[in-house]
Amino acid sequence: MKQDLLKILEIIKLGEKLKYELRHSWLSNGRQESVAEHTWRVSLMAMLIEPMLKEEINTSRLLKMIIIHDLVEAEAGDVPAFDTLDNKQLKELKAQNEIHAIERIRDTLGNELGQEMYDLWFEFEHKETYESKVANALDKLEAQIQHNEADLSSWIDIEYKMSFMMDRYVEFDPTLKQFKDLIEEDAEHKLTHAGIDVVDLKNTILTSK
């Protein structure tokens, strides 16, 4: 028992790093966001939206997946999605680093709990189960909500386009699709208010597909 608790304490201490591992997202008060803050709000979103999903879902499994999926960034660091969007080599390196991290987490625990965390992390990555699809969708949607709340000066050019590129994450569920539309509307309002031609921006996305 004591040895198992010591191993759990080690993983909890690892999780502390997520409190100061920063994402490429800024808060409405001008402070940069930590990974831990992002993960917490994805969990909140899961709890709030779960009753509205089209299929019955294993809420415990969903929340575990959300909590675990970013834990690897305590070792591998956070790599923004736009950095890997058109960079296959960096995308592969990111994947390798994260796999090594989840293997170390599994081996540190060295028991059924470690294997469960390992399996849930890969379930999230493979996006094949209903729970993993929901977790992935909420992860992407929360990031866009945070961008919408941040000052536009914190955005880079690619993020203008990425505001309207979330369809593939939500197409499996009508509630998430509608939720995505509301988030896109907020982004469109923000960009339009700043004098950015959103129609032209969306056309650019369509022609690049």
Rank of each mutant, 00 (worst) to 15 (best):
Tyr20Asp: 09
Leu22Asn: 13
Leu22Trp: 05
Leu22Ser: 07
Leu22Asp: 10
Arg23Cys: 12
Arg23Trp: 01
His24Asn: 15
His24Gly: 02
His24Gln: 07
Trp26Val: 08
Trp26Cys: 04
Ser28Ile: 02
Ser28Arg: 08
Ser28Gln: 11
Asn29Thr: 05
Gly30Lys: 12
Arg31Trp: 02
Arg31Lys: 12
Gln32Asn: 03
Ser34Val: 02
Val35Ala: 14
Val35Met: 14
Val35Pro: 07
Ala36Gln: 15
Ala36Pro: 06
Glu37Asn: 10
Glu37His: 09
Glu37Asp: 11
Glu37Ser: 14
Glu37Ala: 11
His38Ser: 06
His38Leu: 06
Thr39Arg: 01
Thr39Lys: 01
Thr39Val: 14
Arg41Phe: 08
Arg41Lys: 13
Arg41Glu: 15
Val42Tyr: 00
Ser43Gly: 08
Met45Arg: 12
Met47Gly: 08
Leu48Trp: 11
Leu48Ser: 14
Leu48Glu: 15
Ile49Gly: 02
Ile49Cys: 11
Glu50Ala: 15
Glu50Cys: 14
Pro51Gly: 10
Pro51Thr: 03
Met52Thr: 06
Met52Leu: 14
Met52Trp: 10
Leu53Thr: 06
Lys54Glu: 14
Glu55Ala: 08
Glu55Gln: 13
Glu56Ala: 11
Ile57Gly: 05
Asn58Pro: 01
Asn58Phe: 01
Thr59Glu: 11
Thr59Trp: 01
Thr59Asn: 09
Thr59Ala: 07
Thr59Phe: 03
Ser60Gln: 11
Ser60Ala: 09
Ser60Arg: 12
Arg61Val: 05
Arg61Gln: 14
Leu63Ser: 03
Leu63Val: 08
Leu63Tyr: 01
Met65Gly: 11
Ile66Lys: 05
Ile67Asn: 14
Ile67Arg: 10
Ile67Trp: 10
Ile68His: 03
Ile68Tyr: 12
His69Ser: 12
His69Ile: 05
His69Gly: 04
His69Trp: 07
Asp70Leu: 03
Asp70Pro: 00
Leu71Gly: 00
Leu71Arg: 00
Leu71Ala: 00
Leu71Lys: 00
Val72Tyr: 01
Val72Ala: 12
Glu73Thr: 07
Glu73Gly: 00
Glu73His: 02
Glu75Tyr: 13
Ala76Pro: 08
Ala76His: 01
Ala76Arg: 08
Ala76Glu: 03
